[in-house]
Design a protein around this nucleic acid. Structure first.
Length: 278
DNA sequence: AATCTTCGCAACCGCCGGAGC
DNA sequence: GGCTCCGGCGGTTGCGAAGAT
C-alpha cells in the first residue's frame, strides 16, 4: 500500500530551479498567511509546484535570517563535533546553528567536512601539527582561511571514544547534555575566536563530557518548538517584518543579491532556525 | 578555444511519524 | 484500530560553474 508521493498526482507540476517570479509569489503568500498549511499554497497561489517543493524552497532559501555560504571555522567546529556526537541528524545540528539550514549543513558536510575528517582519520595525528611554511610556527596559531584551526578541532574528535564512526553516534541523555554544554560554551565565545580560546573551549568541552553532567532541563530534541525559546539555543524570530519581505523582494529581483541579503540579515538579527516563526 | 573532469549546491525522492477522521 | 493526510527528515541526484587538460 502506501500513500503516493504528493507530487505524483499533480498534472503539470513544475520541477527544477525556482524563478524569481515564483519566489515572489511564494514569499507574498507566506507574508499574508504565514508558513504552514503547505498543501494550500499551490492551490491558492497558482504556483505549479507541489506543496513539498514550496516548503523546501521556503525553509532552505527564502526564509529570512538564512546565512549562505562561507562557513566560519567556528561553525565548522560546531558541525564537526555535533556530527560526531549525533550522526547525520542534520535538523538537530541545524537547530544549534540558527542561521544555517539543515540542507546547507548537510551539503557542507558532504562536500567539505567529511573529506577533511576522513583525511584526518587516515593520517597520523602528529602530521596535522605541522605548521605550513608560510605561517607562524606555532601549533596554536590560527590563520583565517587556513585549515589549521579545523584540523585541531577534528583532531579532538579522534580523542572521543565512540565517535570515529559517524554511523554510530552516542545516544543517551548524557549526549544531549554534553552537546548542550558544548554548544553553550562555544556560543559564548566570540565568533572571531582565536586559537587560544578555541583550545580552551575544546578543553572545557572534554571536561564537560568527562563529567557527563545530566541536564534534564536542556534536552537536545525539543519537540515543542513553540516553547523552545527559553534557552540560548532557541532562536526566536522577533515577529513579522514587512521590511524584511520588502528586502526579500528586492533581493530576489536584485542583480546583486548579496547586498540586499546583508541588509536582510541585519534586520532579522540573524536568528531563526524555526520554520514556524510568524 | 574546445573538451573533459571535478565540485558545489539547489532540488527531488522516498520514508517515517504524528494528527485527524 | 486502521486509514489517509500532511509535514519533516535524510539520502541522493542533476545541473551549472569552475578548474584542468
Amino acid at each position: 500500500m502506501g500513500r503516493p508521493p504528493c507530487c505524483d498526482n499533480g498534472v503539470g507540476v513544475k520541477k527544477g530551479p525556482w524563478t524569481p517570479e515564483e519566489d515572489i509569489v511564494l514569499v507574498s503568500y507566506i507574508q499574508q498567511h504565514g508558513p504552514g498549511n503547505w498543501r494550500s499554497v499551490p492551490e491558492n497561489t497558482g504556483l505549479m509546484r507541489c506543496s513539498k517543493s514550496c516548503r523546501l524552497r521556503w525553509t532552505n532559501y527564502l526564509r529570512p535570517g538564512i546565512k549562505r555560504g562561507n562557513f566560519t571555522p567556528h561553525e565548522e567546529g560546531i558541525i564537526i563535533h555535533l556530527q560526531a556526537l549525533l550522526g547525520n541528524k542534520w535538523a538537530a545540528i541545524a537547530s544549534y546553528l540558527p542561521q544555517r539550514t539543515d540542507n546547507d549543513i548537510k551539503n557542507y558536510w558532504n562536500t567539505h567536512l567529511k573529506k577533511k575528517v576522513k583525511r584526518l582519520q587516515t593520517q597520523p595525528a602528529d602530521s596535522f601539527q605541522t605548521t605550513p611554511s608560510n605561517s607562524v610556527a606555532s601549533p596554536n596559531y590560527y590563520t583565517p582561511g587556513s585549515t589549521q584551526h579545523n584540523l585541531q578541532g577534528m583532531q579532538s574528535i579522534n580523542n572521543y571514544p565512540n565517535t570515529t564512526n559517524s554511523s554510530a553516534p552516542i545516544s543517551s541523555d548524557a549526549t544531549a547534555s554534553t552537546v548542550s554544554n558544548f554548544v553553550q560554551t562555544w556560543m559564548m565565545r566570540p565568533s572571531q575566536a582565536t586559537t587560544a580560546n578555541y583550545k580552551i573551549t575544546m578543553q572545557e568541552y572534554h571536561e564537560d563530557q568527562a563529567a557527563a553532567v545530566i541536564c534534564k532541563d536542556q534536552t537536545l530534541f525539543n519537540d515543542d518548538k513553540s516553547s523552545s525559546s527559553g534557552g540560548m539555543m532557541a532562536p526566536v524570530m522577533m515577529g513579522p517584518s514587512t521590511a524584511t519581505f520588502s528586502l526579500l523582494e528586492d533581493w530576489l529581483l536584485d542583480d546583486m543579491p548579496g547586498q540586499a541579503m546583508d541588509g536582510l540579515m541585519g534586520i532579522t538579527g540573524g536568528c531563526c532556525a524555526d520554520p514556524i516563526m510568524f
